[in-house]
C-alpha cells in the first residue's frame, strides 16, 4: 500500500460587531425604571493554532501518517491503527460566537475524490450516506474497500506512543465508553430517515467540533453517522461543557480503520478543513 495521506487545513474568519453603552435613571416613587446592561462589546478575541507533529520525536510535519508496516492486508474485519502523527491545538477564545468546524470535503477533492457514498445503517429508522475518511484513489469511495474510516480524539495531555497503544483502543473508542473518539464527517454526508426527512451532515454552528463550550462535540456513531452532541469526559475534553476554557492546549490523535485494504491501494484525503465561523 502506498502511503499517501496528505492533509490541508484551511481557516477563515468573519467579523463581528461592537456597540456602545447607554444609561438610565430610576426614581423614587411607586414606579421606576432601571436599566441593566451587559456590555461585551470589547470582548471576542480569538486565537487558534493547529500544528502537526510526529509522536516519535515531536518534530513538525505537514501530513498525517500511519506506520503501514503494522497494517495487515486483506482483513475483512475492523483493523484500527493510530497514526504516528498528532496535532497540537491551542485556543484562546473569548468569543463564544466563534465556532471551529472540523470536517472533510472529499467530494470536492481532486486526487482522492469521493464520488460514491458508503451506506451505513445504524438504526432501523435511518441510513447515513458518508463520504468521509480516507478515500481510495481509484475506487473513489463506496462500500467495499473504497475508504478507510478516519477518527480522532482529544486529550488534555500529550500521550506517548506506548500510552496510546496501551490505554486507548481506537475501535471501541468510537463506539462507547468514557474514552470518546469521533469519526470525521464529510460536508456531503447526510442522513436519510424513513419518514422522508433528509438531513445534511450536522456540521452546524451549535455542534462544531471546536466550539468552546461543547468540546469535541461532533459526536459520531459507527460509520460516520452524526447524531449530535455527546457529553465529553473531562480527561479527554479540553473544552468540557460547563467549564470555562479560555486558553487551552489540547492534543489530537488520529485513528484509521484499515479494513479490506490490499497491496497497491492508495488512500488519502486532501480536504480536511478546520473552519472558523462566527455565528
Amino acid at each position: 500500500m502506498k502511503k499517501n495521506l496528505g492533509l490541508f487545513f484551511i481557516s477563515f474568519a468573519l467579523l463581528f460587531c461592537s456597540n456602545i453603552i447607554c444609561a438610565a435613571v430610576i426614581s423614587s416613587g411607586t414606579v421606576g425604571t432601571v436599566d441593566i446592561v451587559a456590555d461585551f462589546s470589547n470582548m471576542g478575541s480569538v486565537d487558534f493554532s493547529f500544528e502537526l507533529k510526529n509522536i516519535a520525536d515531536d518534530s513538525s510535519t505537514d501530513t498525517i501518517n500511519w506506520k503501514i508496516q503494522d497494517v495487515a492486508l486483506r482483513q475483512d474485519a475492523p483493523q484500527w491503527k493510530w497514526s504516528t502523527t498528532y496535532a497540537v491545538v491551542k485556543a484562546t477564545v473569548t468569543d463564544p460566537t466563534v465556532s471551529y468546524y472540523l470536517y472533510q470535503k472529499n467530494t470536492e477533492s481532486t486526487v482522492y475524490k469521493s464520488t460514491a457514498a458508503r451506506i451505513v445503517q445504524v438504526y432501523t429508522s435511518s441510513v447515513t450516506f458518508a463520504h468521509s475518511g480516507l478515500v481510495h484513489e481509484e475506487k473513489q469511495g463506496g462500500d467495499y474497500g473504497g475508504y478507510i474510516a478516519l477518527s480522532y480524539f482529544f486529550s488534555a495531555n500529550k500521550l506517548s506512543s506506548s500510552e496510546l497503544q496501551r490505554e486507548y483502543d481506537p475501535e471501541t473508542m468510537t463506539q462507547s465508553g468514557d474514552k470518546v473518539a469521533r469519526y470525521f464527517t464529510d460536508e456531503a454526508d447526510y442522513v436519510a430517515y424513513y419518514n422522508g426527512t433528509v438531513l445534511k451532515s450536522e456540521i452546524t454552528s451549535t455542534e462544531a467540533n471546536f466550539k468552546r463550550e461543547y468540546a469535541v462535540i461532533a459526536c459520531a456513531s459507527a460509520g460516520g453517522l452524526v447524531f449530535g452532541p455527546y457529553g465529553a469526559d473531562g480527561s479527554f475534553a479540553p473544552w468540557a461543557p460547563n467549564e470555562v476554557q479560555r486558553s487551552k492546549t489540547a492534543y489530537m490523535y488520529f485513528g484509521g480503520n484499515f479494513m479490506n485494504v490490499f497491496r497497491g491501494d492508495i488512500f488519502g484525503t486532501d480536504k480536511i478543513v478546520i473552519e472558523k465561523v462566527v455565528e
Binding site: C17, S18, N19, T30, V31, T33, I36, A38, D39, F40
Partner: peptide, 23 residues
C-alpha cells in the same frame, strides 16, 4: 439581585429597561 446567562453571549452589548413598581 440580578443574573444572566452569558454562556451564549455575543461580543456585543445587551441591555433592557425594567419597570419596578409598588402597587
Amino acid at each position: 439581585f440580578f443574573a444572566c446567562n452569558t454562556g451564549n453571549a455575543k461580543a456585543s452589548k445587551y441591555t433592557a429597561s425594567f419597570i419596578i413598581s409598588l402597587s
